[in-house]
Design a protein around this nucleic acid. Structure first.
Lengths: 330, 330
DNA sequence: CTGAAAGCGCTTACAG
DNA sequence: CTGAAAGCGCTTACAG
């Protein structure tokens, strides 16, 4: 920077002013500096800037697993949004491990960043206190209401009820729920979606048959396949599947097809998330769309606001809209 | 660091030595320092370290689009590998844009990192010279042979020939190629895979029928669907599809099913990449597996080696193994 | 094995 | 509108 200044006939101070654009500089000086920058191929040292200002210009995105479609699509959307805000995004795969989630929240990640967008999975409500402190942070997914942390969420229970209601509307009466996880906390997606499922049944004057609750701790393709295999091998009778996410549903579709079960004639299937492949499965999957890239945009915006406001302002919670996407599977 | 030293009764120099572990420190001193670190909740300032050492501890991963399964799975694998090497990974979505690819290669990304792993898409061979310079860099995908840059690739033509050969082996004679892109350069995946396809036909004494070449500039689900719709609407007769990647194949499967075409009876389908969903499609997809997470591991390792050796050492090219995964679609 | 000191490349009160 | 100078928090020759 001093070298640039030397060529332009100014000090580093003025070069900095020109480059940051925060302080007015006379047009001639500005032109001279820019010329010198070009001539030297000068690029600012971000480390020095970071050291001085305390701002890194990057945010951390912490997700359980990038190879899960929902997360990778979320990551893509967040990257795009962050880009618009001039942020780089550093990736942190937490592998569904509480330890790593805590580590990231405590800011012990390898890389210091200005803020964090995290979708926790294994973190308990007890860990809440830790969250609020340490660093600017936006939570994705579901957590205890009243959490003093910015968060973007969706109406999980309502959406699940809507999905189940649709299955009831088309005349199904033996609807299995795929993705139940009895070890989930009270404010997790698995619990809320189960609640929505039960609410729909109840509203129709029906009881939840425990036999129809198919467990799946993780929600990957293989987990959906295994859950439905289980249902089938136990001889459970069902005419519909409400899967807690699309990967489960895709796995389910696969197993049903292998067993010669017709979808939707014998068994109707509804998913949750509307990932890209779901529109192209055989048959195409009816599913809940959780507001598209809205979550990513809301998250980045919330973090941006938090960074501008500082930690004192009250936490904001955004509830994303959803809608049922009707395709052939139900 | 000075504060920590004050408590431990040493200077920052010794604290630094303890924390870096590079210089021997007496056990008592070490214990005292560690205690002080704990007591103060001290965390090292990475910016200062970076400024001083010139190393950021992070690498940049530049991919066209995270919402494409192949790339997101690659990103997940790279993140995992980088983690093992103690690196954070910063994400750069280039959106298939030459401009952004150049920008990243020139190191003009928002974030300075120690090195770059990039899968270019729009970059031409003319840009090669730029690549070699600027920063430690590992190339993914296909490029001119003899490129003076570390690169991880696979035997695209061989794999494509293998896939096509399989279709010939099971008695198919009208094999359409899906994903042809006439504007691709001579060393791109589209060109190499087409070449493998043609080589297989030629080896069987057959000619390439231009009618069977289905264009698709991008290789997403919708592109595969559109390509096959085109084939169908043009009334082209075909009994097999060799799709240049799995997303195209999945899109194709969808359209075939919509039109009541039986797979594999009427039309056999082979894909390329073996992404996770491909094992769960209906029918499950026969495809080329490009060495699993081997590419990610090889890339991170190559970058690691490059960083240790400096720019003078000769560039290394790794050709990843592949194999055909036989499932029901062909 | 440890101290005292310089310096990495910026930004920013303090002056003028 | 611009200079001279301090300081962000580390690491590392230079000594001892």
């Amino acid at each position: 920077m001093a070298d640039v200044g030397a060529i332009a006939g100014v000090t580093s101070r003025t070069v900095s002013n020109v480059l940051s654009g925060k302080v007015a500089v006379s047009p001639e000086t500005q032109a001279a500096v820019l010329r010198a920058v070009d001539q030297l191929g000068y690029r600012m040292n971000t480390a020095a800037k970071h050291l001085r200002t305390g701002r890194t210009g990057s945010i951390t995105l912490a997700l359980p697993d990038l190879s899960v479609d929902y997360f990778s699509q979320l990551a893509g959307a967040v990257a795009r949004e962050a880009d618009r805000h001039g942020w780089a995004v550093t990736l942190e795969q937490t592998n569904y491990e509480r330890q790593r989630e805590l580590q990231v929240l405590l800011g012990q990640g390898k890389h210091l960043s200005d803020g964090l967008i995290i979708q926790p999975y294994a973190l308990q409500d007890d860990d809440i206190e830790i969250l609020a402190a340490k660093q600017p942070c936006v939570l994705l997914g579901d957590h205890a209401p009243g959490l003093p942390v910015d968060h973007i969420t969706m109406a999980n229970a309502d959406a699940a009820q809507c999905a189940t209601q649709h299955l009831l509307n088309i005349g199904r009466r033996r609807i299995a729920a795929v993705g139940v996880n009895s070890s989930g906390g009270p404010h997790t997606a698995e619990t809320l979606r189960l609640r929505g499922y039960e609410a729909a049944l109840e509203a129709a004057g029906m009881l939840t048959d425990p036999e129809l609750l198919a467990e799946a701790r993780r929600w990957r393709l293989q987990d959906g396949a295994a859950a439905v295999e289980g249902l089938l091998s136990r001889g459970v009778h069902f005419d519909a599947l409400f899967c807690f996410n699309d990967s489960l549903a895709l796995g389910a579709l696969h197993v049903l097809s292998q067993h010669g079960v017709a979808v939707p004639d014998d068994v109707a299937v509804v998913g949750f998330d509307d990932i890209a492949v779901s529109a192209y499965s055989n048959p195409p999957l009816t599913t809940i769309n959780p507001g598209g890239t809205g979550i990513a945009a809301a998250a980045v915006q919330a973090l941006s606001r938090r960074l501008a406001q500082g930690p004192s302002e009250a936490a904001v919670g955004v509830v994303q809209d959803f809608h049922l996407v009707l395709r052939s599977s139900a």
